Computed example of a mutant assay.
Amino acid sequence: MLHFIRPKEATLSVLLYLLLGAIGLPVFSGGNGGLHIFIGQTGGFLLFFPLRALVTSLIANRKKSLIQIFIANFLGEVVLFIGGAIGFIIFTHSLILTTLKLVVLPFVLPDLIKITLTTLFSLLLLKTLQSQSYFKIEK
């Protein structure tokens, strides 16, 4: 059986991405990089990316069904929203309701659409990879 990226690999790859951005490479939104990005209003999102990768990978690797993959991505997104909201509250001293209105609610529907598309494409990709003889299939 071909696996999705394993939890350790998922977490380490996101940590590497964050390290590249932290040393100044322009890998973050808008072509930005540097440590200052972690301290701004969106720093909580970046800091919670590794946890999102871990949660998503742990759940997605259990069973490869549409529902399981959707749940994995959904819960990973919840983790990311929590981290982003916490970071926003700490940086701006905003109230929780204000934070929800600015940081979470505008992105719920677009993210649900992205999660749905990701779920559908991941299964199609997995089936395609499994049909290719040059990929190692684990049993």
Results as ranks from 00 to 15, higher is better:
residue 110 P to S: 01
residue 122 S to G: 02
residue 20 L to K: 03
residue 129 L to G: 07
residue 99 T to E: 07
residue 16 L to N: 02
residue 30 G to F: 04
residue 132 Q to I: 09
residue 94 S to M: 06
residue 137 I to M: 12
residue 48 F to C: 10
residue 16 L to P: 02
residue 82 I to N: 01
residue 18 L to V: 01
residue 90 I to E: 09
residue 128 T to N: 10
residue 132 Q to R: 14
residue 100 L to I: 06
residue 105 L to N: 06
residue 4 F to C: 07
residue 120 L to C: 09
residue 23 I to C: 00
residue 42 T to V: 05
residue 94 S to Q: 07
residue 96 I to E: 07
residue 2 L to Y: 12
residue 122 S to C: 07
residue 18 L to H: 05
residue 60 A to H: 01
residue 4 F to P: 04
residue 133 S to G: 08
residue 103 V to M: 13
residue 77 E to M: 15
residue 137 I to V: 15
residue 38 F to Y: 04
residue 74 F to Y: 08
residue 23 I to K: 00
residue 3 H to L: 10
residue 119 T to H: 02
residue 25 L to P: 05
residue 68 Q to K: 11
residue 89 I to T: 04
residue 11 T to M: 13
residue 24 G to K: 03
residue 56 T to S: 09
residue 29 S to Y: 14
residue 63 K to M: 09
residue 23 I to Y: 02
residue 102 L to M: 14
residue 127 K to M: 10
residue 20 L to T: 06
residue 111 D to M: 14
residue 120 L to R: 04
residue 81 F to I: 11
residue 15 L to T: 03
residue 123 L to S: 03
residue 63 K to G: 04
residue 102 L to Y: 10
residue 3 H to T: 13
residue 75 L to G: 05
residue 36 H to C: 00
residue 113 I to P: 01
residue 132 Q to T: 10
residue 133 S to E: 11
residue 22 A to M: 09
residue 45 F to R: 07
residue 35 L to A: 09
residue 42 T to R: 13
residue 106 P to I: 09
residue 47 L to N: 01
residue 114 K to R: 14
residue 57 S to L: 06
residue 52 R to H: 11
residue 33 G to E: 02
residue 88 F to R: 02
residue 88 F to L: 08
residue 13 S to F: 06
residue 5 I to Q: 10
residue 39 I to D: 09
residue 49 F to D: 00
residue 39 I to A: 15
residue 117 L to A: 12
residue 1 M to H: 12
residue 50 P to V: 04
residue 44 G to R: 08
residue 20 L to G: 06
